[in-house]
Design a protein around this nucleic acid. Structure first.
Length: 558
RNA sequence: UGGGGUGUCGCCAAGUUGGUAAGGCAACGGAUUCUGAUUCCGUCAUUCGUUGGUUCGAGUCCAGCCACCCCAGCCA
């Protein structure tokens, strides 16, 4: 459990401060994160998780995990498990407070009976189509159901028979009796129970009627003693119903619902429907594809929980619909990764370099710090040999202006080793560069050459003393800032280069022991992590989490 | 054209009793650097959707207007 998540004060905390000052709730603060187990958690959920848990932490309160499992047909255990794993991974702990709305089905039923007994709810036989027609429109009031004045006795009997399984799905519903003319459509006698002969992942076949969200959520909150029920903006219109239900019933407590804006990020989609479509149409490789904004995908990609938490912190909590720039997330990521990742060298696109003046049998064992600013990470060693690999992008036969890497006749420093000069370019029959013949200035180990400045520093690996590995390079899934925008299908805005697999990269020997999910900074390239599922000791696979800031690349593109 | 919300710098976002626009991201300069990384300095809203009004004084109060988001599931 992270003990310090700082959500900066926001309008919700101001409400809580004022509640506390007024002695409301006996000084308690109790929140909950209430996912429906009908899919995997994504970045949007992370906001709610952080807000709810961090708020509890800030005020010395508690936060429950409650599965809002009132629609069995869409839910399953796999989601229940994945959701818990993701919340733990993010760094939060609900201790012994894991609940399910289905825990309350008996109480919920009793409360419904109480409502019927008070004449505040009735059994309705309208079909879904009829119900829609009776509901009216945004600008016209609805009409009362013909069943609205059914006697309390008959309602009780019918509701009990609904529960006992005497009726088929869709034949009856239980509706709250409120006001069919309300300008708020949620108040036009909303359905609170429907018949569903479906197996439930928690309650099995015990029930064939299931309570609706609006009816369930407020009562669940009340039962759990939730003080502040935080939810997203689209539920603002539901608040009157939330309060109405609790006002009718003899519940132990009346929580306050407060709404905040969802998290939106540019260059991605967040809707469950679209995410599912990407998976189903194999546009990505599953829900945990490293390009997905799901927490499982981001985890596999190498994102750190701290970076995600930090983004939520700096993005803030408000009520305005906004789109956060992924650049902010990337900033949080690099900030955390730079601090925590040991450095290593890995040549992504190898180009052989032969040091003509370096004896074939000679070798240098070079010690290099794992982190330039954190000595506690220690050192690793690399073997320097006559034949090396450098990255193809670090050599240009015809260099662009301001290029400060290797060029014909030019010098460059091999990081942590010697300064070399390119003397000869070797090409194959097709004119492709196959190797470089260079000379090594043997007097430049750990010291600068006399009388000249060598500006460029590039990374390298010994040809014989390095290991082969696969590297998966990821970019943003979409090329379009707003894939959801009106023009065109979001799938047409997918980035064709979002995944590039490099199968013969050369890594320094110390990387051989990389464990799944272990993170590194490959110097001058970016942050990588060993793939959680595919990386094996004899077949290392690294995922690019995020590249280093690339001002050179930016200069070139302008 | 019903109801509920929101509009402060390219992107987030503070601004609580009206007193003269925080911060972060991005961007742009520059310094340091054996990662074109990191770090470090500096620049970046006479203006708060808009029009009026009240006031010595308004992002903050009042009125009108405009734009955008959400709601007509027996989904959550």
């Amino acid at each position: 459990m992270v003990d310090a998540v700082h959500i900066p004060s926001n309008f919700i905390h101001q409400i809580i401060d004022s509640d506390l000052a007024n002695g409301k709730n006996g000084g308690r603060v109790h929140t909950r994160f209430p996912p429906e187990p009908n899919g995997y958690l994504h970045m949007g959920h992370a906001k709610s998780i952080c807000l709810n848990f961090a708020t509890a932490l800030k005020y010395g309160g508690k936060c429950n995990l409650r599965f809002d499992d009132t629609n069995p047909e869409k839910e399953n255990l796999e989601y229940v498990e994945s959701i818990q794993a993701s919340i733990r991974w993010l760094g939060f702990d609900w201790e012994d407070r894991l609940y399910y709305a289905s825990n309350y089905f008996d109480q919920l039923y009793d409360y419904a009976v109480a409502l019927v007994s008070q004449g505040k709810a009735y059994v309705c036989s309208l079909t879904p189509d009829q119900a829609r027609e009776y509901r009216g429109t945004l600008t016209e009031p609805g009409r009362n159901s013909p069943d609205r004045e059914r006697s309390m006795e008959d309602n009780l009997d019918l509701f009990s028979r609904m529960k006992n399984g005497e009726f088929a799905d869709g034949t009856y519903t239980l509706r709250a009796k409120i006001d069919m003319a309300s300008p708020n459509i949620n108040m036009r006698d909303p359905v609170i129970y429907r018949i569903r002969h479906a197996h439930h992942h928690q309650t099995g076949n015990k029930w064939c009627i299931y309570p609706m969200y609006d009816y369930t959520h407020c009562i669940s909150d009340a039962i759990e003693g939730i003080t502040h029920s935080l939810c997203t903006l689209e539920f603002e219109d539901h608040r009157p119903l939330y309060d109405w239900i609790l006002d009718q019933l003899d519940v132990p407590h009346h929580p306050q619902q407060i709404e905040f804006a969802r998290l939106n990020l540019n260059y991605t989609v967040m809707s469950k429907r679209k995410l599912k479509q990407l998976v189903d149409e194999k546009l990505v490789n599953g829900w945990n594809d490293p390009r997905m904004p799901t927490l499982e995908g981001m985890r596999r990609r190498g994102y750190t929980p701290a970076a995600i938490r930090n983004l939520i912190e700096i993005a803030g909590i408000s009520k305005s619909n906004s789109v956060v720039d992924v650049g902010m997330l990337e900033h949080c990521l690099r900030e955390d990764l730079d601090r925590t990742s040991p450095r290593a060298m890995c040549v992504l696109r190898p180009l052989k370099v032969v040091l003509t003046n370096y004896p074939a049998e000679k070798t240098d064992i070079l010690g290099m710090s794992r982190h330039p600013k954190d000595e506690s990470m220690g050192e690793r060693s690399m073997t320097f040999t006559r034949e090396l690999y450098i990255d193809r992008s670090d050599f240009e036969e015809v260099p662009p202006p301001k290029f400060k890497r290797l060029v014909p006749g030019g010098e460059v420093r091999l990081r942590g080793a010697y300064v070399i000069r390119c003397d000869e370019i070797v090409k194959d029959a097709a004119g492709n560069i196959t190797e470089l013949h260079c000379s090594c200035d043997m007097d430049t180990l750990n010291k600068n050459p006399e009388g000249r400045k060598v500006k460029g520093v590039i990374h390298w690996v010994s040809a014989s003393n390095s290991i082969s590995c696969e590297v998966r390079l990821y970019e943003r899934l979409f090329t379009h800032e707003n894939p959801d925008s009106a023009e065109g299908d979001y799938r047409d805005k997918l980035n064709p280069d979002s995944l590039v697999v490099l199968s013969d990269c050369r890594a320094e020997p110390s990387l051989a022991s990389a464990q799944p999910e272990e993170r590194f900074q490959f110097e001058r390239e970016g942050y990588f992590c060993a793939d959680r599922f595919d990386s094996k000791p004899d077949g290392l696979v690294f995922n690019l989490t995020i590249g280093l800031r690339d001002t050179w690349g930016k200069i070139q593109n302008t």
